[in-house]
Design a protein around this nucleic acid. Structure first.
Lengths: 231, 231
DNA sequence: CGATTGCTTGATACCTCTCAACCCAGGTGG
DNA sequence: CCACCTGGGTTGAGAGGTATCAAGCAATCG
């Protein structure tokens, strides 16, 4: 058998969720007692900063509730949202001594902090945890690469369609995208402006592909049509 | 002491090179005897395919000589080059059972293949190798995220400047970018068209920022000016 | 209520793409 | 040696997609 880091081709955000990081703490055989929360669950209000690019990356987090965005800023204010993170996702697990991006709360949310220096020792002795962290890193990488194709080679309508498809896949029926983030967040995730996102959503609705049930609730009336745009 | 995966903020392509993968095979203490080349060095001619997206990812490679590109294709032919890989870089180390992208030779090149299934066992027993692979994954991730900012939020001139800066940093004097790839490769890496790349290079030359010594040799006359575009 | 925030819509500008012609170097064959 | 061809690159003109600037709408909140 070859290395099986994780279930494999998963939707963008399902990737990290496929790595139930909390599991290590529940599995006595994993001997993970040494990696424990560095403190109690922390709460953040919407738009509150969790950590900032350049801060000392002494801890990383696991999202418990709510949605977190990780992003990079240019010094003229332009922003690129790298990813949205939901319950179970890891945030801030970094290669260097400093965070490489900023993390902010999209909605009110809670996170568990972990000490990073605990990981060093565990890489030696905790096989299960090592595999999980490895899987986390590799899947984040796959997701980032898929995002590059999106950003580099897709039109606005393709970007928005891909985004809606990605979020609708998380709903029970796979057709209702319930968005936690603003249009500005979406725009910065897709490399567009807020106006273009808005216009594209309107156009998709006029075309009968989606229905704007509420500002942040979008029903996919024709998932196949949207998916075709994700060629 | 916290986890120190690798030297830290390095230029895009230096990241993977900072992980001298071959070292594991040279260090007896690392007990890496189980991860060995799955065969002799393989040679590829320019533009030859090394592996294709969707192929069974039984082996991964380390670049010995030459330059390799990894890319994704859309079914209408649009291409996104994810990264260029030079000597020492790993290519094709994947989370799933299949390659997530295609690898092709930019120039004539040689690569050493490794069996991926050997890694599984090593994650348990070989600490040094585990750290190296970890560092590889994390740095690839950082690089991919930086690339997202480039693709999503930068103009053509900023993209080209960043690209030139990145390659010039590898030269002895840090001012001469010797490119192995065609304008088309550059365009697909930056999410532009070949014409826009060409026009932008011409404009930078007219502005006195660079000098087109030869088609694939570009001298940075004003690295600072270029770097300022990389805000 | 008025103010604020998030969103939508419109008019216009601009950047990049598309399509096309041309250039140039290198190779091939007469 | 030269004519020709080919692949990679450059340049130009025009089209088109997205950004910018601006106005207005709806929901929320004090």
């Amino acid at each position: 058998m070859s290395v099986q880091f994780a279930p494999s081709p998963a939707p963008l955000h399902a990737a990290a969720r496929a790595v139930p990081f909390a599991k290590a703490a529940h599995d006595p055989a994993a001997r993970s007692s040494e990696l424990r929360a560095s403190g109690p669950v922390q709460s953040f209000s919407a738009d509150e900063e969790i950590f900032s690019e350049g801060d000392d990356a002494a801890v990383f987090f696991r999202v418990v509730t709510g949605v977190v965005r990780t992003c990079k800023f240019m010094n003229d204010g332009r922003r690129q949202v790298e990813a949205f993170h939901v319950a179970g996702d890891l945030v801030g697990f970094e290669p260097g001594e400093e965070y490489g991006f900023t993390a902010e709360a999209v909605s009110d949310c809670t996170l568990v902090p972990y000490r990073r220096h605990g990981v060093d020792a565990l890489l030696t002795i905790d096989e299960a945890l090592t595999r999980q962290l490895f899987a986390h890193a590799m899947h984040s990488l796959s997701r980032a690469q898929a995002h590059s194709l999106l950003l580099g080679r897709r039109s606005a309508i393709e970007k928005v369609s891909a985004f809606l498809t990605e979020w609708a896949e998380r709903s029970p029926d796979g057709r209702m995208a319930k968005l936690a983030m603003t249009r500005q967040d979406i725009a910065d995730y897709l490399g567009l402006t807020i106006e273009t996102v808005s216009r594209t959503l309107s156009q998709l609705e006029r075309d009968g592909a989606i229905e704007l049930v509420a500002l942040r609730e979008i029903r996919l009336k024709s998932p196949a049509a949207l998916h075709n745009l994700n060629a």
